[in-house]
């Protein structure tokens, strides 16, 4: 099977799991609403009956923000005007690329880990639904049945991510710092920095892909020995590097395109009527839903490719391999 075919086959598969994607989105939204109401109340209280309220509706008021940020407590401290429009994406991408996504307020770390657990739970369900000969076709039954093993796999993956983003990235940063200690041309340091992130993220994405296939292998074969799954997946990716990576980067390009489109259409600070504010919010929600679909699309396409590869290139069935 070619990556492009798996890519399109994957998108068709999304319809089969729409309920569960919406369920995940509902959790995401509920968490955001709970925390957002705290931030919103802090902004509301800070504004009172002042004219700054009008300014904030029409645009922004940096004098108000000066007072607000100087006195903000708890979650309200995380409010910054750069959350507007594409800033909501770039602020996080910046932390993501630099391996700092889990830093900051403790509540973000806690909720982030819970959210990871939820996705780990749902992963087996998604994969099971996408596999044509799944041993446990029921979504929730599969999700529950494989949770322990996928959590173990996630811990293994987390250790590798830590090595890459915590240790290797730091090592490369230190190495470049030493290498460019006397460099006076910003361009050299800039391109070396780009190269650093390129190298690290090539590996991170590669590892991510291997662990995606590891999950598929665990669910497909009901594999009990979790550490074997990444080894098997590693072999699969090594055997079909162009196809597996081609599909992965095709989906990556889709993600980039989504960001670019959102950049073009995301409203800025100017939305001033209730209707415009709601429209901006709904557009943001659409973007979040599409991102979640994309995440499931990875599974859907990768399962299609996985099954296609075994049908076309091997006489063995997946069960026999295990």
């Amino acid at each position: 099977m070619k990556p492009l075919r798996a890519y399109f086959q994957g998108v068709l598969g999304l319809w089969r799991v729409k309920r569960y994607i919406l369920g995940l989105y509902a959790v995401n939204l509920m968490l955001a609403l709970a925390l957002g109401s705290v931030v919103g109340r802090a902004i509301y209280r800070s504004l009172g009956n002042s004219r700054a309220a009008e300014n904030l509706v029409q645009g922004f008021d940096s004098l108000w923000y000066g007072s607000f940020s100087a006195t903000a407590q708890g979650l309200a401290r995380t409010f910054h005007p750069a959350v507007v429009g594409i800033g909501a994406v770039f602020e996080n991408l910046n932390d993501f690329l630099q391996g700092r996504l889990f830093e900051g307020e403790g509540i973000f770390l806690g909720l982030g880990l819970l959210y990871l657990l939820l996705w780990t739970f749902f992963s087996a369900g998604f994969i099971s639904r996408f596999l044509s000969r799944a041993q446990t076709p029921d979504f929730l039954q599969a999700a529950a049945g494989f949770l322990g093993r996928l959590v173990l796999l996630a811990i293994l993956a987390g250790m590798v991510y830590y090595l890459l983003l915590g240790v290797f990235l730091d090592f490369l940063s230190g190495w470049i710092r030493g290498l460019t200690r006397d460099t006076t041309d910003e361009r050299i340091v800039f391109f070396l920095t780009l190269g650093k992130y390129g190298a690290v993220w090539f590996l991170v994405w590669w590892v991510n892909m291997v662990f995606d296939y590891s999950k598929i292998i665990i669910v497909d074969r009901n594999l009990r020995m979790v550490p074997l799954a990444p080894v098997e997946a590693f072999g699969l990716v090594l055997k079909h590097p162009l196809k597996t990576m081609g599909l992965y980067y095709l989906l990556g390009i889709t993600s980039t395109l989504m960001i670019l489109i959102y950049w073009m259409v995301a409203p800025g600070a100017g939305a001033s009527s209730a209707g415009e504010i709601w429209a901006a919010f709904l557009l943001g929600q659409l973007y979040i839903i599409l991102r979640m679909c994309l995440r499931v699309w990875f599974y859907s396409s990768q399962v299609a490719l996985y099954e296609g590869l075994y049908k076309t290139s091997s006489n063995q069935s997946p069960e026999e391999i295990g």
Binding site: A32, L35, V39, G40, V83, V84, G87, G284, I288, R291
Partner: peptide, 14 residues
């Protein structure tokens, strides 16, 4: 502004 913060937070979770 809380709605914009929410999108930022949702994207962070994502």
């Amino acid at each position: 502004w809380a709605s914009k913060w929410m999108i930022w937070f949702q994207h962070k979770l994502e």
